[in-house]
Design a binder for these strands. Structure first.
Lengths: 335, 335
DNA sequence: CTGTTAGCGCTTTCAT
DNA sequence: ATGAAAGCGCTAACAG
């Protein structure tokens, strides 16, 4: 491997001079600068950023910890993060927690040992508290993405889950639905709680009685089995509409209904949080509360980098991104 | 920051002993091992992998360079790569080239300087040759994903583009189509050339004359504008079916046709390479040649890690993954 | 079973 | 404008 010493020797200068040329720092005569640069090119020299990281105590690397790159929301968020990171001179390390605290812990350990400069953290749930405190103890800045964690103060970029849910359910009510089910993520996740509240408020606002049998908690992951919906469908008075708390749930529900020959929206209306990426371009079908996923990633990265560079330790900023109701074909007027 | 020396001092041992405990190497008495471990816990010690990388000359990091995480094919591939990397003890650095050689070059420079142990490389095209040679010069192992590059010998994981295209076009022909358009990616990409060949062979096999006016090259990225299809649609004898060389193109085409009130499949049949992730779960609509994207990533990572660990320099392996024709609603019997 | 020494490739600091 | 020395945190190699 070629080092600054190899360059230095050939150029008859010290390693320090080479370092200065690389970093464009300090006063160097144009002549030696040119000479050094020429030799670097000839030898195909590439600075070793590991060595630099060790002395500078910074890696110029950010970690992006999400639950699943396969979910269009996180995919697009990741794209935003990547673009911003690249622009700001940072690399991005990718991790998938699968909504699983054990896996999340593994990544946190890696993050700690890798000495990344900061973390973009979409927590698996309230149980992520330990992990985040662990980051704090080690003074690794992070910004929370999409989900809050009680007990943690930090920069964050979140959506308007309650308001979005209220809108979505309000939309269903306006269409004449009164038996509206909520299929939710785990209540250990802040967005699931907020979406529940939005659901509840929308019912109340419209004098529709709340029926707890219409609320299911299935987790934000892809449905495993069509039968998971049976408790809802076999109700004496089954719902005429389902509000799914995220896109994965909605897709699973639509597929499950299809397998049971229940047509959407003819027999059941469906609306959900988060848009579907390509799916909605191909066929604008699902009614959704669309969140600006790219902005979550892009702005989150900007916040993080500012935090890193200013080394502040409080003055937390919270960016709240609105969601947009997009009414499409999966919800229909009742009666 | 806490170092092995801090631990060593408190435990009344040398730094080397601490290092041995961390790495579980060398014979150490259970007693001192326990003592050291206890102190590490008390002090919340985390090994600094930057320092380790510097001396061991390995970073335990792989780079995944794809064209766009936002494409379900690459998203799923990334997921496979991540899972395999994690399992094998490697981290994953993510990069998006956007089918753009300039951006790709930037990432290659980062890769070089980051001293990753290997690269999972989905090249932007034949012009990636320089970049790959640059990796070779620096002895960074890589495996080519999805696309080959003339002039480069290496491990690779690719699909059966020609065969898949032949099947897809054969399927259209069986349905009675004779005017079949091909909307392709750039011919500087191996898969686009192979898909063209498959298209051509299928026509020939069925005695359908090849009409070059039915072939368009639009690039594998998302369509910008519905009017890009006009040359095809305004033909004297327009096509009755379109074979799109990838999923992004197909979605763009469907959307463009929708905006022109051309119904699929009633007025136009569409089939494409690569499945659509969630979109196909939600609504199994597009007829596709589905590639096992997850396997591309997973197996590619396994190949790469084997290559890294064995330090071989030839004996290239090529994994060829079949695609599966999934006939859905976007293609219909003619006449 | 444990310790000492040297050095990975770079930058910081202090000289000149 | 340039250089020498020291050290970032760790491990390889050798010694005992």
């Amino acid at each position: 491997m070629i080092t600054i010493y190899d360059i230095a020797k050939r150029a008859n200068v010290s390693a320090m001079t080479v370092s200065r040329v690389i970093n464009n720092s300090g006063r160097i005569s144009e002549k030696t600068k040119a000479k050094v640069k020429k030799i670097m090119e000839e030898l195909n020299y590439v600075p070793n950023s590991t060595a630099r990281s060790l002395v500078k105590q910074e890696t110029k690397t950010l970690s992006l910890l999400i639950t699943d790159v396969t979910n269009p929301f996180y995919t697009t968020l990741a794209r935003g993060a990547e673009d911003a990171a690249m622009q700001l001179g940072y690399k991005l390390l990718l991790g998938n927690s699968d909504e699983n605290l054990v896996k999340e812990k593994e990544y946190v350990d890696i993050i700690l040992s890798t000495r990344v400069d900061g973390v973009l953290f979409a927590p698996a749930g309230d149980g992520s508290l330990d992990h985040l405190q662990s980051l704090q103890r080690h003074r690794i800045p992070f910004v929370l993405l999409d989900r809050e964690v009680p007990g943690i103060e930090s920069d964050m970029v979140v959506g308007e889950s309650k308001e979005g849910a209220r809108q979505l359910v309000g939309h269903l009510i306006k269409l004449g639905h009164k038996r509206i089910a909520l299929v939710n993520g785990s209540s250990t996740i802040s967005t699931a709680r907020q979406r529940f509240t939005g659901y509840w408020e929308a019912l109340k606002l419209n004098d529709i009685p709340f029926d707890e049998r219409l609320v299911m908690e299935l987790g934000y992951k892809q449905l495993e089995d069509a039968s998971q919906l049976d408790p809802l469908l076999q109700l004496e008075a089954p719902p005429t509409a389902i509000f799914a708390a995220n896109n994965f749930l909605a897709v699973g529900i639509v597929a499950a209904l299809r397998s049971k020959r229940i047509r959407v929206p003819d027999h059941m209306s469906i609306a959900c949080f988060d848009d579907l990426g390509l799916a909605s371009l191909l066929n604008p079908f699902l009614t959704v509360a669309s969140q600006p996923a790219y902005q979550f990633g892009f702005l989150g990265t900007q916040l993080l980098v500012e935090r890193i560079q200013q080394k502040l330790d409080s003055n937390w900023r919270k960016i709240i991104l609105p969601s947009e109701l997009i009414a499409r074909e999966s919800t229909r007027q009742l009666g």
